[in-house]
């Protein structure tokens, strides 16, 4: 396999509930290669979102290690952590909740350019215009407020912002789940094209194995905090080995066929 961008070993996180410790993620191990998409699929409460938050270090694990781009992500502090954050970006399900709704599109996209000192102030409008163009949005959108644009446009802005700091890995947590099907198809195509251009890796979290099949090279199936099955996406879907994998495959709504 090509270079490994992310390597996770024995990752664990428990939360307290009613005085008891409940394991949200237990002993999770996986890796993501350069230019690769790893799909993480599982039912509600299986630990997918906790796993992505651990990888982003939005929460701290109880056990295990995370190596990113050759370094130990979990021991980083201060400036070193901030510098790594430039190379790991995220896109969430609801960009209206992720952004200040009154912020302008240009502001949202140029924040990472400013914070990570990537582009001088004078050059930022051009950089924003270029990023908007790359995600298929017209330049005039730069002056609109986040709340004024459509859900699909907002998710494109979220992707433009994630791309702004030229990350090696983007964690996408249910990033297309709230979109209409036609918009979803465009966003998935955009993600695939951007990956081909830049070699960025994706950790693509979804409850929908059909969406994962469209975009992920490999898939990890989660249930009750554990990764219960991993493998090349086509292979896992064709012959799932775990009960959860079988249930996820069986539950995909299927269009009625002429011969049904």
């Amino acid at each position: 396999m090509s270079d490994v961008v992310l390597k996770v070993d024995g990752l664990g996180k428990a939360f307290a509930r009613n005085g008891k410790r409940v394991a949200a993620v237990s002993d999770a191990s996986f890796s993501v290669g350069a230019g690769e998409t790893l799909g993480i699929v599982g039912p509600s409460g299986s630990g997918k979102s906790t796993l992505s938050r651990l990888v982003l270090r939005l929460i701290e694990p109880d056990a295990g290690s995370v190596r990113f781009d050759g370094g130990d992500l979990l021991t980083l502090r201060g400036a070193a952590l901030r510098s790594v954050r430039q190379r790991i970006q995220m896109v969430f399900q609801d960009p209206l909740a992720a952004f200040n709704p009154r912020a302008e599109v240009a502001e949202v996209i140029s924040d990472p350019l400013r914070i990570h000192r990537l582009v001088a102030r004078v050059d930022r409008p051009a950089a924003v215009a270029h990023l908007l163009d790359r995600v298929g949005l017209p330049g005039v959108l730069a002056e609109r407020a986040i709340h004024e644009i459509s859900g699909g446009q907002r998710q494109r802005v979220a992707i433009a912002r994630a791309l702004a700091s030229q990350p090696k890995l983007i964690v996408l947590d249910e990033a297309v789940s709230a979109l209409d099907v036609s918009v979803r198809a465009h966003i998935l195509r955009l993600l695939v094209d951007l990956q081909a251009e830049t070699g960025v890796s994706y950790m693509f979290v979804s409850h929908d194995i059909a969406v994962v099949k469209a975009i992920a090279h490999r898939v990890a199936i989660m249930d009750q905090g554990r990764i219960v099955e991993t493998g090349p996406t086509g292979q896992v879907i064709a012959a799932p080995q775990s009960p959860t994998g079988k249930a996820l495959v069986a539950a995909v709504p299927r269009l009625l066929q002429a011969q049904d």
Binding site: R189, V192, I215, V249
Partner: peptide
């Protein structure tokens, strides 16, 4: 999209 839809991606890099 369902499990019969061809993937958007090619082979793994």
């Amino acid at each position: 999209l369902d499990l019969g839809t061809p993937p958007l991606i090619g082979v793994a890099p």
